[in-house]
Amino acid sequence: MGTMEWPLVLFTVLGETAIGIIFVLWWLDRAEVDPIFYKKAALLSGLLLALALIASLFHLGRPEYAYRAVSHLSTSWLSREILCFLFAAVAWLYFYSQVRQPKGKRRLAAGITSTFGLLGIFSSSMIYVLPRVPAWDSVQTPLFFLLTTGLLGGLTCLVLGRKTLKLSQLQELLLIVFTCVLVSILSFAIYLSMLNTAGMEGMSTVQFLLASPLFWLRVVANWLLPLILLVTYFSKQKTINANLVIMLFIACSIGELLGRALFYLSAVGISITALK
């Protein structure tokens, strides 16, 4: 079984949320967006990105040499990830400078930042697509990472803009969230059933997950509760309740953090099986 990699859980989830926010800002920016909300969200995304990068250092045995990690771009997805995230961080500085200017090119900057960010997230997921680890060696891994980006990015913007965004914008965001939750549930179901046929290691991952209370907590927080709340909401189509948004945010954040922790914990690599 794998180990609880807190630095990596925080790095990936926070980083994905940050990029998700920027991406959502870029998306919303097609129409008019409340400037105070935009600024708050932009600032928060930078903060989360910084936290994520700092957290990642704690994973390293020798963080003082972290800069070397970009030196093997030819084959290492980890090198590519770090490079993309570094570019995203620089792009964010540009983005924020544009946000502060009344007539800054913030949409272009947001586009550049989220492009680097999304490339970084994709690279980040590809690190784990290892032939040794059946639980990771599938399309589910990049999908999982990108869904987290959309879900938490969308929800964070919903929380920040719950009072100032237009109803149509909020509904648009809720639709993104709903889509992410639905795709997440469906893809995970397919992933689990396929994993169960992917040899001994895949089966033990499935068994570990099904036996883990953390997993069932995730099922409730990440999928069931959001699904019920969103289906109820979409079936009634009333105004958006601030409590709904906050409940969704809390549930999904817990769910995604658990999901990521379980991602590391449940990894069973192919290894030598012998007596004792």
Binding site: L60, G61, R62, A69, S76, I127, A267, G269, S271, I272
Partner: peptide, 14 residues
């Protein structure tokens, strides 16, 4: 080596 342990995850022989 910076101790990222990715090789540890990648090697099936431990």
């Amino acid at each position: 080596c910076i101790g990222c342990r990715l090789c540890v995850m990648a090697c099936p022989y431990g």
